[in-house]
């Protein structure tokens, strides 16, 4: 075992050279690569952290927006609900008003129709009454209805002469108005009676189709009349009673 000092020196030189070579070709490239990779990883981690922070900020922003939108949606829904309630109330009020209006209109129409029907019935009843009365008088008493009306009016005038004179004032004409033309005999009888009760008053005979069947004397402000209206009013009352009784019976039968 011996030491060759030349070899020792050579080995020291070799070792120093090897240190330099490995430093140049091994340690620095490897450590620089590791440092670069660590720096890159650190940079990426930093980017990831920043991206995460940005994402959290964005998420918070979106959550705030969603909350605001939900709040706004709730407000809009509440406003729409209130508007809908107001609109519904308005429409209901309008509908009720329209229904009331239609009901009133319908009732007015019914009333008018009832009145028209009543008038029609009134006239029909008057015609029938006159026709029956005229036929009964002709069959039973061999007399005319107009003759009897003149006779009845004369009978009314006689006890009221002073009252008629007072009410008529200075009248010079007495007008007899009838639904149809009076027969000659009736006109003569009426003229004679008028001359007897009211001398100087001229009789005049007129017809009025709109007037109820009967005979009316107008002299100045005085008026004496006999028409079938009073009879027809009684007839209407009887008919209404029968109609009411028929309606009640019909209602009872429907309920049964």
């Amino acid at each position: 075992m011996s030491i060759d000092w030349i070899t020792v020196a050579a080995q020291i030189a070799n070792f120093l050279v090897l240190i330099w070579l490995l430093k140049r070709f091994l340690y620095r490239p490897i450590l620089d690569g590791i440092d670069a990779r660590e720096a890159e990883i650190k940079a990426r981690m930093q980017q990831a952290a920043e991206a995460e922070a940005a994402a959290k900020t964005t998420e918070a922003s979106y959550r705030t927006q969603i909350a605001e939108l939900q709040s706004a949606q709730s407000d809009v829904s509440e406003r729409l609900r209130q508007e809908a309630e107001i609109e519904r109330d308005t429409l209901l009020a309008e509908a009720h008003a329209r229904i009331d209006q239609e009901r009133k209109s319908w009732q007015t129409h019914l009333t008018e129709e009832g009145q028209k029907y009543s008038i029609k019935l009134h006239r029909a009843g008057a015609g029938a009454l006159l026709s029956l009365t005229r036929k009964a008088l002709m069959d039973l008493a061999d007399d005319t209805l107009e003759g009897r009306m003149a006779h009845h009016l004369i009978g009314q005038i006689k006890p009221m002469v002073s009252d008629i004179k007072q009410a008529s004032g200075p009248a010079t004409e007495a007008v007899f108005t009838s639904h149809a033309t009076l027969p000659e005999a009736a006109q003569t009888a009426l003229s004679a009676e008028l001359q007897a009760a009211f001398p100087g008053v001229t009789p005049a005979f007129r017809t009025d189709p709109d007037q109820a069947p009967g005979l009316v004397l107008r002299m100045g402000g005085a008026q004496v009349a006999w028409t079938v209206d009073s009879y027809l009013d009684g007839l209407d009352a009887v008919i209404q009673d029968h109609l009411s009784a028929g309606g009640d019976l019909k209602a009872q039968s429907n309920e049964a």
């Binding site: 050579a10 070799n14 490995l22 670069a36």
Partner: peptide
Amino acid sequence: LNATVFFTWIVMLVLTLGSILVTRNLRP
């Protein structure tokens, strides 16, 4: 030139060449 120095060079050559071969394309 004795065997000690010669084989030391061999070792140096192996280490250096191996390092160069591995680290020549070393990029991040």
